[in-house]
């Protein structure tokens, strides 16, 4: 049974927060597709809520304080063994120097190791050709979302909806330059496409992409035959990779984490980077 405007608006919180069951979202979407006033009302409510959320999230991590907290709360050092401190210190110094030297050589040998686009294309190619197994196979968006949420500590939203042309097939987790990554694999127009999801904080590890995203909300890059489209969506950095057009990838990116199928054209969740 269809809902009227009053009933639809009562469920805005559930819709905005991607809560409630799929049937409710379906009924809301049906109403929004036929009622421009409610579609505009939903868009405005979500826009305001996103702006409030963004303001509430602002703040910095106080490095000194966290160092003190970690030292006191997570300390594993023995209390009265100065000689061990000394020996440990020397070993740490030697290890650090070894690591620094190794990193210098490693970076010189592989300049692309901190290039997020190259890393994502590399893994996409492995997943698409079966050289890397997809950890969790399922066509259910809910199952994939729940699986990913158990695997990573940062928030992960639902995979892009099928009405954006993306048909999900599974997901998994990995790391790019030590940063945890959740991924969803699927198809767009018969071509394999991967969606890589990271926490926004991870972007600081990849200076090239960070600089690009400070200039534009959505960035397109190419490596070989693969196109990559990336952007920040709420608390996530999202990359969509595949051998399809950037328009198709762009559509998938904009549908990430959104149940809003027939509403206003600009989803309120995609925002420009904070200034460095």
């Amino acid at each position: 049974m269809s809902m009227n405007c009053e009933q639809t608006r009562q469920h805005w919180h559930l819709f905005h927060d991607s809560e409630g069951d799929a049937e409710l979202h379906q009924r809301i979407n049906e109403h929004l597709s036929m009622c421009p006033e409610c579609a505009r009302w939903f868009f405005q409510q979500s826009q305001l809520e996103e702006a409030v959320t963004e303001t509430l999230r602002q703040g910095e991590r106080t490095a000194d304080m966290w160092d003190r907290i970690s030292r006191r709360a997570v300390s594993t050092e023995p209390t009265a063994a100065r000689s061990r401190y000394l020996l440990g210190g020397i070993l740490v110094l030697a290890a650090s120097m070894l690591i620094v030297v190794s990193l210098v050589f490693w970076n010189a040998a592989d300049g692309s190791s901190r290039d997020l686009t190259t890393l994502s294309v590399g893994l996409h190619e492995k997943l698409a050709t079966g050289r890397e197994d997809v950890k969790f196979s399922s066509g259910s968006h809910i199952e994939i979302e729940e699986y990913l949420r158990r695997q990573v500590t940062f928030p992960v939203r639902c995979p892009p909806r099928e009405d954006a042309g993306f048909h999900a097939a599974g997901g998994g987790v990995c790391k790019f330059d030590q940063a945890p990554v959740a991924y969803v694999v699927g198809q767009v127009g018969g071509q394999r496409v991967s969606v890589f999801i990271m926490s926004r904080e991870s972007l600081s590890r990849f200076p090239e992409q960070q600089a690009a995203l400070q200039r534009r909300q959505i960035v397109s890059q190419q490596r070989g035959d693969c196109e990559v489209v990336m952007g920040e969506v709420n608390e996530n950095l999202v990359l969509v990779v595949g051998r399809v057009t950037t328009d198709q990838l762009d559509r998938v990116l904009k549908a990430y984490g959104s149940y809003h199928e027939h509403g206003p054209q600009v989803p309120p969740t995609h925002r420009a980077s904070d200034p460095a």
Partner: peptide, 17 residues
């Protein structure tokens, strides 16, 4: 402002909207 209006129900149900 855009206020919700009850008549929408019938429109929606009749597929006329």
């Amino acid at each position: 402002k855009a206020a919700p209006h009850e008549n929408e129900t019938n429109d929606v149900e009749n597929g006329e909207a």
